[in-house]
Design a protein around this nucleic acid. Structure first.
Lengths: 300, 300
DNA sequence: CTGACTTATACTCAATATGAGCATAAGCGG
DNA sequence: CCGCTTATGCTCATATTGAGTATAAGTCAG
């Protein structure tokens, strides 16, 4: 009846360096840190921590579960039984000169619509999707799938770009055969680095979760240094979400939510007027544990 | 190295009957439908569907993953290996005269602050928590834990009740030794039915997820009949969230989001003026797949 | 048939939140 | 000094939200 199971733990470990969100990888950027659950692991989280630290030498902070997979793809041979993957999102602060870190947007250039490179990538995608839809037999199907392309990739500015749909966009590209993981020809592939197995898909899940979460929980501060200026905070939010923020409104919102307090320090190297330094209010966070970090996001 | 694993699938199957949210149970309300993942199951979701239908005879609709557990409690004997539980939230429509359905609030009476019974229960809890905190040695700990009680249970109306913190509240009561699952004496137990293992905790997870999700995704309609009046929709939202809604504002929000359309039909048995019947707009939902169902919730 | 009571539906109004921009401050390098 | 940068304070129109009033259209008791 019950077959033997192999449980794999996979981590999307994220940090921000020089305003660029990064993910920890192994195998030259082709795999996320991962390994089987062992009997010595006291819990799933402990197992994730153990594997990440063993493979990358990097200790991790905040950890939360993402998703558990057991797809057809993950079926091993009949003798070995089934494979189940439990994925986690982990956040951490600095990382001076460690290897294994890669930019998020090396894997998902189209998610970085703030930059010209991202917009160029979206132009390519739009063309390829158009071709994909045009090649369908069924007219109703064509309409339906084009509608999907339009909403997911905000084609033709009838729909606004939704930064949280990272996974849905990746899955559409996969279905359309435009990513290397789908086994397509290199010339019809969208820009962006591929990964082994379904690790890029898991990375997409983690990015989506983080983009969603920074909007209603003060998790950004897990990625910030102890002291920071408001512009630094804003740049981190922008790079994570891939969307511009109106500076004055951002400050207003952060201040009125009382998530940060002045340290009294001053950052001089701003390139302009010196900026006040702030720190995250851990105490207030304890008291009103469940407030959000609303951010005024603006379209590019 | 790797030990043998037993994967258990657990479902929080929810429906609404007569404006009361209900959960499907087995073993006289002491367990959620559950069973081991078998090699015949094509996927995890398929396994959940199979177990629920086998144990309850009820086919299920919308399914989404909740959480994967592998706590210490779930460690089997050294020979058998470890046990992992993957829990799912499932939604379904009607259920005429089936057995196994139990009210949510039989297990979590304090979550139903709309009713007098719920408010009475909260009074009892407040007293018991007060006693629990008072019995602590460490003064700093006393302050910290009382702060936690105040925010989670909205004691003393400095903090507003947050209906999404179902799990956090249950965990606080567990820590305080006020629920039967914590192995406490029956006389110092908070009202509410217990369950075997950690199934009540999993139910709390499902309730919290659903309460959170109805705010930003049109999932309520999975629980509604084909046609309904706006008051019926409102009552379902209220009973799920356990919070009152301002009637006129609710209508305004639902209408302006264009989530529903008139069927042309009229419901006569309202006890007052007859009401128009509506249906969920599936087509619009397809087009703008990712809009939310904002609801204007009001404190009691 | 009338009046009390129910629910349905339309509309108003004030308080707040949000998006966008202006203005001034305070550093830099020439 | 000027022109550049970023920081920070403030205004203003608009949108969203919370709360209430007003009216419509049924039921039921007498």
């Amino acid at each position: 009846m019950t077959t033997q199971m192999l449980i794999e733990l996979i981590a999307v470990l994220t940090a921000v360096r020089d305003d660029v969100p990064q993910v920890m990888t192994i195998d030259h950027g082709r795999l996320l840190p991962s390994g089987p659950l062992e009997s010595t692991h006291r819990s799933l989280q402990a197992g994730v921590r153990a594997w990440v630290e063993r493979q990358t030498g990097h200790p991790i902070g905040h950890v939360e579960q993402l998703y558990t997979f057991a797809d057809h793809d993950r079926l091993l041979g009949a003798e070995q039984g089934r494979m189940i993957a439990i994925s986690y999102l982990a956040l951490t602060r600095s990382h001076a000169g460690e290897t294994g870190w890669r930019d998020w947007y090396d894997y998902f250039p189209w998610e970085n619509c703030k930059t010209d490179a991202g917009r160029d990538c979206l132009t390519i995608i739009e063309r390829l999707l158009c071709k994909w839809v045009a090649g369908m037999d069924n007219a109703a199907m064509r309409v339906r799938q084009w509608q999907r392309c339009v909403t997911l990739f905000a084609i033709g500015d009838m729909v606004a770009w939704n930064d949280e749909l990272v996974l849905q966009r990746y899955e559409l590209l996969y279905e359309a055969g435009l990513v290397a993981e789908a086994g397509c020809a290199p010339e019809s592939t969208v820009p962006g680095r591929a990964m082994h197995h379904d690790h890029r898909r898991i990375l997409a899940t983690g990015m989506a979760r983080l983009r969603a979460k920074i909007r209603y929980r003060p998790v950004v501060f897990e990625l910030m240094p102890e002291e920071f200026t408001l512009l630094q905070l804003q740049r981190v939010m922008e790079s994570l979400s891939g969307v511009h923020i109106h500076k004055q409104n951002f400050r207003r919102l952060i201040m009125q939510q009382q998530l940060v307090e002045e340290t009294g320090g001053i950052e001089e190297n701003t390139g302009g007027r010196p900026a006040r330094l702030y720190r995250f209010c851990g105490e207030v966070r304890q008291a009103r544990q469940f407030v959000g970090t609303k951010i005024p996001l603006v379209q590019p």
